[in-house]
């Protein structure tokens, strides 16, 4: 696997972590009612969206540049 492929795998797993962390924060907030965790959930889901957008951008750019090894 090239660095390009490994990077896409890494960004996918990072996205899952961001979404998972958001879900964890929501769960803590629903059980204990803590605004700090609600804020954490929002930030985590936003980070997940950023990572998804970046992943798509990166894949398209590498394809366009034909950097495939």
């Amino acid at each position: 696997m090239s660095l390009r492929g490994f990077h896409i795998v890494f960004i996918t797993i990072s996205t899952l972590l961001a979404l998972g962390a958001g879900a964890w924060c929501l769960w803590i907030d629903s059980v204990h009612g803590s605004p700090a965790f609600r804020l954490g959930a929002i930030c985590s889901f936003l980070a997940g969206l950023v990572l998804i957008s970046y992943g798509i951008w990166f894949y398209r750019k590498m394809k366009r540049l034909r950097i495939i090894t």
Binding site: S2, L3, F6, H7, F10, I13, L17, G20, W24, T69
Partner: peptide, 25 residues
């Protein structure tokens, strides 16, 4: 740089597992 980058990605990936295991759960 690609080989070093592959190593770096592995190190980052390990942290992606360390973070939820130790900090969140």
């Amino acid at each position: 740089v690609e080989v070093a980058g592959l190593f770096w990605h592995f190190v980052d990936l390990v942290w992606i597992f360390v973070f939820p295991l130790f900090y969140l759960l």
